[in-house]
Design a protein around this nucleic acid. Sequence first.
DNA 1: CCAGTATTATGACGGCCGTCATAGGCCGCA
DNA 2: TGCGGCCTATGACGGCCGTCATAATACTGG
Lengths: 209, 209
Amino acid sequence: MTAPRAPRTHGPRERMVFAAAQLIRRDGVGATGMREIAARAEAPRGSLQHYFPGGKEQVVNEAVAWAGRYAGRRVDRYLAELTESAARAEGGRPTPGALFAAMAQQWIDEFEAAGFTTGCPVAAATVDSTASTPSAREATAAAFTAWTTPLTAALTSLRVPATRAPALATLMISALEGAILMCRAHQSTAPLTTVTTELAPLLDAAAVS
Amino acid sequence: MTAPRAPRTHGPRERMVFAAAQLIRRDGVGATGMREIAARAEAPRGSLQHYFPGGKEQVVNEAVAWAGRYAGRRVDRYLAELTESAARAEGGRPTPGALFAAMAQQWIDEFEAAGFTTGCPVAAATVDSTASTPSAREATAAAFTAWTTPLTAALTSLRVPATRAPALATLMISALEGAILMCRAHQSTAPLTTVTTELAPLLDAAAVS
DNA sequence: CCAGTATTATGACGGCCGTCATAGGCCGCA
DNA sequence: TGCGGCCTATGACGGCCGTCATAATACTGG
């Protein structure tokens, strides 16, 4: 997304941003080293200097921004999938609770497949580097916005009134992020399923008939 | 609470654990140094070695455990305060939503006073060191348990059925932790107030008449 | 007062970090 | 064929880290 057109196979720069995001969400910002990023991306260490003259700060900020965009795109995709399957099966419209369930399920699948080793990179960056440079904090804010905005739009398309959609989007992301934390701590997907179950009636009730 | 009776003034050991918790919640685990902990506690650097032969891992784990116990005690205190004031004013009983509001307000006050520089140490430890030693992860799990358990009990005493109280406690802590993250990122207390408002009806509806 | 333990104090060591400097390879274009 | 850019490669530097070793000091019980 930095370039208008991505190279046919992901270029080294893109690979490094992606590798940084992966490492950050596993180990946190502080414990992620530049050398490690280059190694993970199978990119030369010198290229980090070349593509990211701003140093580690720039790499981390781009990784966080990428993660925010990714989360936003996932929301759009879930909405499209749910809308299609709901229309085909019952001729109806999916509920906000089903959208949240899809978002949570993504994490449950990942935890079950990868074993609670990784969390949300935006959360990691928020915790780790709020106190550091202002640009790092701004990057996390932008990432949350890039996630909240499509989610708000999705809720609106699910007949949630425009006055409540932003608040519910904030609630959904908050609950999801917190549940992810608890899942990692307890090494269990239970918090995510619990939150999904408990939140569903509230979310569904917000959609006007 | 490590010792049955605390020394009249907090001893150096206790001060170091406290200082570690403060630094962790501001900078994260990785960015918090042993020398910094000692300096903040106004304790000699050699005492860290003496009181914590397990090294940084031990200090961090004790700080996280302390934070969990602290959060649990806060829940008990809020419940007591709300119960008393509700009984005096209306002769009634406080609602679960009011309990959540009290928990959130603590953070709002802190953010407004200290400027979004600090978050929850348990969240920081979870993000930073899930991948490191197993004991660190266990410490975060124990901390969440030390928080969830009193909260579940509090909900039960507010007439939430025992079958739903644990789930609601998980939801409350998840939403609170996530909202704290978003507040820090956006440098605004809005997420906390939003979550409090949106969650209140759900929580209150769970209390049987 | 003395012995012995608890605490404090300080310096050194090895390791990893992010960054910089400096070459070396590579490829398109004249 | 040569030249000028992008990219790659590699080593060095200073700094901070956690830990260890070794004292010096304070305190308590006899």
